[in-house]
Design a protein around this nucleic acid. Sequence first.
DNA 1: TAGATATACTGAAACGTTACAGATTGCCAA
DNA 2: TTGGCAATCTGTAACGTTTCAGTATATCTA
Lengths: 350, 350
Amino acid sequence: MDKQRRGKKEEASAQGRPTLKTLAFMTGLGVTTVSRALKDAPEIGAETRRRVQLVAKQIGYRPNRAGVRLRTGRTNVISLVLNTDREIMSFVSDIIYGVSEVLAETPYHLIVTPYSRSQDPMEPIRYLVETGSADGVIISRTQPNDPRARYMLEHGMPFATHGRTDMGLVHPYHDFDNHAFAIEAVRRLANMGRRKLALLSPPPGLTYYSHTLNGFADALSEVGASEIPFNTVSIDHSIEQIRSRTAQLMRRENRPDGFVSSAAAATLAIVAGIEDAGLKLGRDVDVVSKQSSDLLHLFRPELLVVNENFRLAGSELARSVLGWIGGAAPGSLQSLSLPGEVLAYRRSAD
Amino acid sequence: MDKQRRGKKEEASAQGRPTLKTLAFMTGLGVTTVSRALKDAPEIGAETRRRVQLVAKQIGYRPNRAGVRLRTGRTNVISLVLNTDREIMSFVSDIIYGVSEVLAETPYHLIVTPYSRSQDPMEPIRYLVETGSADGVIISRTQPNDPRARYMLEHGMPFATHGRTDMGLVHPYHDFDNHAFAIEAVRRLANMGRRKLALLSPPPGLTYYSHTLNGFADALSEVGASEIPFNTVSIDHSIEQIRSRTAQLMRRENRPDGFVSSAAAATLAIVAGIEDAGLKLGRDVDVVSKQSSDLLHLFRPELLVVNENFRLAGSELARSVLGWIGGAAPGSLQSLSLPGEVLAYRRSAD
DNA sequence: TAGATATACTGAAACGTTACAGATTGCCAA
DNA sequence: TTGGCAATCTGTAACGTTTCAGTATATCTA
């Protein structure tokens, strides 16, 4: 089933897709020259360079990814590693969009590498590193001592984490300032006269758990409020669990008059639980919640919200990995975004 | 910068990653034999086959994707083509998860190919086909006369559509039965005594727009209810627009006492609009809404919901493309999922 | 003038895989 | 004994790219 019967060497005619050989034939040059001309190598004459590039553009030449990859080992792929069961939904799509936006202007493709509850989180990472399936990796659900980050660092795989680590190792990251978020949230509640505050935290184990807790604690003492412990659930628990635990808490003698919630979906459950206990949002209790899409105010206008921009996170993460791949110092590719305004800041030097 | 100085032919020692050559060296066979043995070719002796496969497993041999792709043209990639601005969020992540789940057990990777408002929807499709970047494609926002489907059909690129077309061409698809959804919704409203119904429809132009409209109309005459036109907005409009249009509608003399909403986020806006007009959900008006994650009942317990399972859609779509790639008849890879239960049915023959 | 040096270009080899077209061996029929 | 044939196995080439080690020509230096 040979497409065309054709002479071995001297033809590069009307096949499917133009290759370097096609270009070489058309320009009368060698493939090497064409290859170098296309990447603006200095040892190619200026006119030749322009000529080759013109022809290439005209016939719509696009380098064959498999060829490049086989020869150079570069895949032109960024892999986004996602937990299939745990990750919140809006989160995922926004990150993907953010990453896509940045990659769209580059030769990079985005591939999504999933892993599920049943698997070791290291497994997809090992796969990517061992098979060299990507030039760069983005991970989330970052832990203070993250084996994935350590592994990739050891094996020279460029990556960026969504969230910081705390292992004394330097690598690119993007993080939302959850310490600042918790402070802001507590202050707002204090301003409304709330004094007994509960926190629905991120899952323990992830780095931003302690960021959030620290911010919460710092602000409590700043404003002179006290904490009503609410640490039997986290935002990783099911809606039903959060709802019933909240109701249970609100029926107690010493109940909170303010909540700080680290996720929008969980906030729905908190409010439901509050109302289950016969209390009223805005009168008996106030709730400050993080949200990533602007919908909570429709749910209950009394809700106080702080916005976290995941699309921005995706873009920043993509830029970070690309930067590292491009040779920038990993320490210069760290960014933090502040609650409230979407503004990203702090690109420290290193 | 040569990694190791080593003799040309006769060594395949401790480099990075095992290749066929490594296996050939270890087994004492030729690369051809090894290659064929690994894919259970009949002309390889049974024992040799077992031996090769054992060694391959032992040293963790994984075929080099670039090599395979360059040689065969097979990419082992399925591309999910997504609109970056329009697609609803939960939608996207669920579909991705559904697709991932199926691909995880295959050698296929999922790559996300985005396109945005500013671009021609055909552009990513043309890119994929021209560069042969994928073995199969999944598209959504399907139109009755869909140029993307037509193009891929003409160019022999296997694909599956989320939603049906209506061009007299046969191809794999998965669809939610929106006709049945609309009927079910109207019946429920009718059962509650609602007689003047408004529909917040999908965007005109997409195939399921008319499915929904037809179901709505059919059910109206079945139950003897009448329609209050509400076609100045669709679920693609902004939350604010839907909200204000709803409020406006509800302040009119001849206002609806029931709504059918094709999307959960839009339902939030409808309810807000209803309440803006000083009316009460469950008393003055009822709303039936599609939802893909089980959150609406927290928003307002009075809401009536119909579940659409996007994760299932993703899985079905993935299975369909893989089936087509595997040589199955495209007409046998069509499925429809019914509202209410997540059950998928109808795999017609062709 | 001879030699050196810079400029512009080139062929061959290699990345890992598979397809094609043999090669080698043993066995059986004539 | 010979030829044929089936059963196994093998080398070579090719996919498209980049890198290495050149070659050929023109230009400069002494």
